[in-house]
Design a protein around this nucleic acid. Sequence first.
DNA 1: GTGAAAGCGCTAACAG
DNA 2: CTGTTAGCGCTTTCAC
Lengths: 340, 340
Amino acid sequence: MTNHNRPPTLEQIARAAGVSRSTVSRVVNNEPYVRTEVRERVWEVVDEMGYHPNAAARSLASRRSQILGIVIPRAVNNVFVDPFFPALLQGLSDAASERGYHLMLSMLSHPSEEEAFYRRALRSQMLDGLIISSAALDDPLIPRLLKGGFPFVTIGRHPNQPAASYVDVDNMQGARMAVEHLVNQGRRRIATITGPLETMVGVDRLEGYKAALRAAGAPIENELIARGEFTEPSGYAAMQRLLRAKPDAVFAGSDLMAMGALRALRQARLRTPEDVALIGFEDAQIAASAEPPLTTVRQPVYRLGTTAIDLLLRLVEDEERGPFRAILPTSLVIRASCGA
Amino acid sequence: MTNHNRPPTLEQIARAAGVSRSTVSRVVNNEPYVRTEVRERVWEVVDEMGYHPNAAARSLASRRSQILGIVIPRAVNNVFVDPFFPALLQGLSDAASERGYHLMLSMLSHPSEEEAFYRRALRSQMLDGLIISSAALDDPLIPRLLKGGFPFVTIGRHPNQPAASYVDVDNMQGARMAVEHLVNQGRRRIATITGPLETMVGVDRLEGYKAALRAAGAPIENELIARGEFTEPSGYAAMQRLLRAKPDAVFAGSDLMAMGALRALRQARLRTPEDVALIGFEDAQIAASAEPPLTTVRQPVYRLGTTAIDLLLRLVEDEERGPFRAILPTSLVIRASCGA
DNA sequence: GTGAAAGCGCTAACAG
DNA sequence: CTGTTAGCGCTTTCAC
């Protein structure tokens, strides 16, 4: 009883099929150069004995784990409320799975955990590549990965890291479309609620807002710009501040902030869209069921995930140098809140 | 140049420190029986050479991967909108990380993927244990894991699987508290919007509702019970159906459905809480910023995650037999919507 | 306390 | 096309 009822190994399959380990390995890995006859015989034995390759042994010998990491810095304090992450994970998960990879999730609560993460997951060679979501612009992980030549892709662009690969949505263009739409509706005092300006998303959407105003020959007034944190309460607070400036339209940098703005407007007895038109950004589920239904800029979050995996695997499998970038288009979803 | 600039191995550390591989292994794994002097010398060399153990080699030799899996069946169609999952993942992630484990995420889109998952992740011995979130009561994965003796814990109880370990919140008690509160406020026609009754959560919350009514000597009327799907639109639709029965209070099985109900009430020109009182379940972020702020049953989602890891690791590390169960308490968060 | 020896189960050249 | 030969880097007895 030397065998503690362990699952069968390559060796055992080989013996049972009357071939060598190499041959079984070739068959199992769908490699060429095996006679059809032999191939079939091996598969039979594999099925019969219920063989399945051992992941650790495979990784050790091939120096590939078939595991990709996804890190989400908790600093992103809206992880809990924003539907962005589940959709992104779904995209990453589906794409990874389709290409035969597994996904390892790390939510880093504290900057100090980045260090631990780096040691445990990366230096232990447990990951073939890494996706980094919503990292701060000065995230220390990024230069470190770059220096180590480790394959990674960020969700959201990092313009001061020219060697980094990323996928992003066209935030500027999306914001611009939204504001131009408001301009075309004849709105004259268009305000905006921005996200944190330490994030690229926050900045880009604000830039889009400005670009649209400039294109329309309208002035950019500071009192029409209020900062939020991508959350509902911060949108509510920002809208209250904006009320003094008497805007007739608001472009919010996220649907959640738009919901907050809507609440502030209602409380101030201002009608949407009659008194103040409103447009959000993201097209989350709540947008459609808001009152009035929220006009918003739709961003393809799921595709952000699948695209990130595509780019990452080019880096990992093809050993292309990169950097690779992808900017996905946004589109304006017109509902009632913008008054169109 | 036989060394392609690979990270140092145990062997190399051993040579550099003038000891054997075994000794370095002991030091790195904090095992006893190494002279302090030697121990320190080894650590020095380890730091100097930047050594870090290779995960694959370790797993292969020790038969442990230090990886736990978390599977989320996509059948849970509200993964995208419900803040439940991010909070749960955060709890799982923090607890796993603290105990030195990694987390592998699998979102299964299709029942057929369960098969693929089982083969790829479990049979390849890549996981030490598994967390299953919100599985259907008849999920085929569960009996299969049970038969294979694989350590796993489900989020949400599975009463027809007496051998399965799980953590859950006290849904019945939570629902009961909510409805009793409405009774105490003098409400007489209390309706409920349930979740899908194929899920244990859905059933348990409905049972709590019934129990409270029975305890109050009130009749249980079918026309006061409407089914939803845990989503906002389904809550809206359910509330519309309930209006015919002219309820003076509603207990919704989730905050999202409560939000939908609120919308339907507003549209019907009924005031909350004056005409119809409302209580939700979960205490998601939106609950606090609803208009009026939503009274709700708070469930400790984050702790659900950390507790699941605790139970799982007892199964994995201590090889205790189990099954282990944990039911976490809920509490009523009173805001304006219930009229208190 | 410490070291030697024997794998863990697989892939990857390289012959033939 | 197929088999042989070497490892991959670590843990784990078992002597000493």
